[in-house]
């Protein structure tokens, strides 16, 4: 076997092994979340037959969102007063404060359609169609008479 052929086989062999590693070791965002956080249960989404997978994180929303986005870069993201929302090819991940407080958060995993419906008020118009309300500033706050 010629030296050139040996070098060529080594290069291509490394490429094949590398590609095999890349494809076999890649987890979906769902798998990564299931590995990292405690599964709590499922939750219904209004007017949708699919249920949401709910996980608990001991960290606040920003730190939890950073962990998830660090594992899997989202295609799009939104952050609002109510939580952080990450969009992937087939999933939408919502990181929202734990209602029990304590600086913890909940991680909600939905498929794209269910996640869109669940978070319509936050991602509607950004990640899809939105025929919701248009409104004027009506104020709020103490004594504003909302």
């Amino acid at each position: 076997m010629s030296r050139h052929l040996l070098v060529a086989l080594l290069l291509s062999g490394a490429g094949i092994l590398g590609l095999v590693f890349v494809f076999t070791s890649h987890k979906s965002v769902r798998e990564s979340i299931a590995d990292r956080y405690d599964f709590v249960g499922t939750e219904a989404v209004p007017d949708d037959k699919d249920r949401t997978l709910v996980y608990a994180s001991s960290k606040p929303v920003s730190a939890t969102a950073k962990e998830i986005a660090g594992d899997h870069k989202p295609a799009e993201r939104r952050t609002t007063e109510a939580g952080a929302f990450l969009r992937y090819k087939e999933d939408i991940v919502s990181v929202v404060p734990d209602p029990a407080g304590g600086g913890r958060s909940r991680v909600l995993v939905d498929d794209e359609d269910t996640g869109y419906r669940r978070n319509y008020l936050f991602v509607g118009g950004f990640w899809g169609t939105f025929s919701g309300r248009g409104e004027s500033f009506r104020g709020g706050g103490p004594g504003a008479g909302k």
Partner: peptide
């Protein structure tokens, strides 16, 4: 206190996600 998060209700059936993102694998690796 946290601002309460609640799922949306009464979402119009015609509305849904558009421009589905590309492969997660390609984006990650």
């Amino acid at each position: 206190p946290n601002v309460e998060y609640a799922p949306a209700t009464g979402v119009p059936a015609k509305d849904g996600p558009t421009n589905s993102p590309g492969s997660d694998l390609l984006r990650d690796r």
